[in-house]
Nucleic acid binder design. Sequence first.
DNA 1: GCAACCAAAATTTTCGAAAATAATGAAATT
DNA 2: AATTTCATTATTTTCGAAAATTTTGGTTGC
Lengths: 224, 224
Amino acid sequence: MTLAEKAYQSLRKDIVEGRFQPESPLRLAELSDRYGMGFSPLREALNRLQSERLVTAESLRGFRVSRQSLAEFEDALQSRLLIETEALTLSIARGDDNWAASVVAALYALKLQTGRAAGDVDALKMRHHAFHRALLSACGSDWLLEFFERLYAATERYRIPALTAAGPQKRDIDEEHAEIANAALARDPGMAAALLRAHYLRTATAIRASMAPVRPFVPSIDSV
Amino acid sequence: MTLAEKAYQSLRKDIVEGRFQPESPLRLAELSDRYGMGFSPLREALNRLQSERLVTAESLRGFRVSRQSLAEFEDALQSRLLIETEALTLSIARGDDNWAASVVAALYALKLQTGRAAGDVDALKMRHHAFHRALLSACGSDWLLEFFERLYAATERYRIPALTAAGPQKRDIDEEHAEIANAALARDPGMAAALLRAHYLRTATAIRASMAPVRPFVPSIDSV
DNA sequence: GCAACCAAAATTTTCGAAAATAATGAAATT
DNA sequence: AATTTCATTATTTTCGAAAATTTTGGTTGC
């Protein structure tokens, strides 16, 4: 793997997982120290992240972690619902036995991980992602799958703080996943899509709740 | 504007307009000569184009113009229909007078350009793009608008050769655009979306016709 | 006190060369 | 004749420094 690819993965992970404050500048000198490489591979990574909207760039003023807002999140959520219901419907129509088996496998692996007491958060996230990808994987559209990946990354930035900061879980998320998988495997696109929507809308409610309290203080002109 | 941005725009234009053969390697030395700049800004541009799927990259083997295929085109077309019908419906529901005026203006400017005998192809393309963007611009979703841009660029690579190689036009494209705009301004989302779909499906038919004959020769195992 | 201006510092952008890797082609071997 | 090996060449990737630009902080003039 080239250094640029390493830089891309490390930076992406650190941004999605919130190790850089949104809006904070990503200075090349700092990143160079942090990741132990020169400017070239870092700039390449930052350019790719820019087209994923995880960072923003301004000419001659460098890169910043893109900012978060409830409006951004709602937009990403609605777009996800559009893309994923379509992809799931297509997947159910076109998926063969291999697809069905991969959904079963992904669900099983995810359940194993959520069941573990001392949870490896990284593994859990990867399996969660893998399950949702498996559901859509037979849709036959590279574009829809790419948009899914983009939106997944965009919303994960919001999902992680909300889940870790969550109080006692009222939801049985394993059960929600199982129901979606069952509907998909039963080739019931309407039911599967409805369950998927409900799943995301419930997560969205949790995220909205977790975002509202941390409204940052923005001084009005008067107060300065 | 930085050199990297210039490189991005020039490269993008040259790829979309077919000045590089699909699959052909984009060698840094050649590009450096062609555009008169060093490797750094070119690599940045290529990385951005990679995430737009206009070029592909393989580790340590550089960049290539991504290949075209009928399957890719059909995928992009279907994705466009999904994204744009949704965005148009939202736009009609949310657009204010400014939006309506911008649609009228874009349609008018486009018609002026198609009416000119000695056509500036560049200007025509920009106004066509601007009209379709104007229709969706009030949808309120940055993600949908971004996906629209991505898919527009992806399909334009196919549209341009098809249109320039087109025989006598059987279609009154101005009229099609006008009808879509009228339905949108009359706030009839069902009608507007249906007309938009028909518009794209007609273009798609022309593109399929222009692609079929150039089916490349792929030797079977037997024939080798 | 306050804005305008200017030099110094910090930062991004770009270049040119060095390092790393892949592709080529000729010689050697089977 | 086909395959392997190995040196040569071509190409990508990375670095370090130079150039260009922005930011900072202080000084001047009002």
